[in-house]
């Protein structure tokens, strides 16, 4: 009769192997997901865009030049006060004749030079987005009693956003102040 073998696997090295793999994955892992400001680019078309006549009062023109200075509707402005100004322009609470007729008619026009620093550009973009987010917040608070967040249902978000649609038009940058190649 065959000798009965003691067929138990020695698993004591399993822990060592698993530790080895664990350390490898610990080291290679990058946990933080990519965060950033998302934008949707307009589709490309070869032919020149047709000119659209806009009522001047509905356009919030922001110009960032190569010296990283800000020009809002023809006057110099600081980045820190841009958000408040944009909010006032969009919502126009006092019904002024030189601000947007209605929030959904407001158009932000952003133009920069090729020499503008990316950091400044993104800061301005961030402020404009923040202005809209704050308006959505107030509107959402008024309608549903909760601040605007991604957890809301799509209909609610759409309802809030359609009141204050974020329309931003970016012009081709002017070739001023480009770095030497």
């Amino acid at each position: 009769m065959a000798k009965r073998m003691d067929n138990e696997l020695n698993a004591s090295s399993m822990a060592d192997i698993a530790f080895l793999l664990l350390v490898f994955f610990l080291v290679t892992t990058t946990m933080n997901p990519d965060t950033g400001i998302t934008v949707k680019l307009p589709p490309w078309s070869e032919d020149d865009a047709e000119e659209v006549k806009l009522n001047k009062r509905n356009v919030f023109a922001v110009l960032v030049n190569a010296n990283n200075d800000l020009l809002v509707r023809g006057e110099p402005e600081e980045v820190s006060s841009l958000r408040e100004r944009a909010k006032e322009f969009i919502s126009n609470p006092t019904g002024r004749a030189d601000l947007a007729e209605a929030p959904n008619k407001a158009i932000i026009s952003l133009k920069n030079d090729r020499g503008t620093k990316y950091e400044t550009y993104l800061m301005v973009y961030n402020e404009l987005k923040a202005a809209y987010r704050e308006l959505w917040d107030t509107e959402c608070q008024r309608l549903y009693g909760v601040p605007y967040s991604d957890e809301l249902t799509t209909e609610k978000k759409k309802a809030v956003r359609s009141k204050f649609p974020f329309i931003l038009s970016e012009a081709e940058p002017s070739a001023y102040g480009e770095e030497e190649k």
């Binding site: 950033g36 400001i37 949707k40 490309w44 973009y125």
Partner: peptide, 20 residues
């Protein structure tokens, strides 16, 4: 950055994220 954006528009990749 604008050049890259133009190329992205030309290739139909319109969803963009400025990492921050």
């Amino acid at each position: 950055v604008s050049d890259v954006k133009t190329e992205l528009r030309k290739s139909g990749q319109l969803k963009l994220n400025y990492s921050a």
